[in-house]
Design a protein around this nucleic acid. Structure first.
Lengths: 107, 107
DNA sequence: CAGCATATATCGAGTGCCGAAGTATGCGCC
DNA sequence: GGCGCATACTTCGGCACTCGATATATGCTG
């Protein structure tokens, strides 16, 4: 498995709490990252197609609200495994550098 | 600052111990990651040019060993700051997912 | 009614990674 | 001596992904 990009990672992480539709994912990713991550729409919808193709997410249901379509996505078991793997990978990579900063406050 | 790719991150991390030449960076990155990261040569030399252009690394010295040139690179203060920043970013991102995995052993 | 938030789709440009091929040298082995 | 291998760097083309812009459509608010 090759590393996952930040947008991809946050899309999957956003779905861990339950199904969301595209725009809601953008907001959730913003919240989870403390406002740091702002998914571009072009990134999001491209990534959603790709992730669905890979089986990491799946369409949960489609609704029409106020005449506007809403597609809800769920994370699959494979997707949940992938984010967890990725989280471990990042944590370990971070340790390599952080470890040699003695006196760092771990907040 | 936008997130850093894994190859870029490991190149900078490799140089935290002192100057290294290209091929040695590949080996060091492999060691640091426990054999997981294998920098492709095309990735490496492209990234070295880019990072030098960004001022995150600099050419330390050039040697000729057995008629073969060797270019040693050092990490700059900006580079060290950037990896450290990136390590924090990854650690925080990892926490978002790992936190909801109760029962995880933090080694 | 103008402007903004919601919601999705699509496209083109740019960035960066990767594998492959090329150049060059020294060393060990048969 | 010549073959293959490890070292060391360069360059190139393809591919994946991100991003911003543009488009479309609706409802709410001033």
């Amino acid at each position: 498995m090759r590393p996952m990009s930040e947008p991809t990672y946050f899309i999957l992480a956003s779905l861990l709490d339950g199904p969301l539709h595209g725009y809601a994912i953008i907001k959730r990713a913003g919240e989870l990252s403390g406002g740091r991550v702002r998914l571009a729409v072009g990134t999001l919808y491209g990534a959603l197609d790709r992730l669905a193709g890979n089986g990491l997410i799946a369409v949960d249901r489609e609704e029409i609200v106020d005449g506007r379509p809403r597609r809800y996505f769920t994370i699959t078991d494979d997707g949940a495994d992938a984010v967890t793997q990725e989280a471990k990978r990042m944590a370990q990579a971070a340790r390599i550098v952080v470890r040699r900063q003695p006196g760092m406050v771990t907040s």
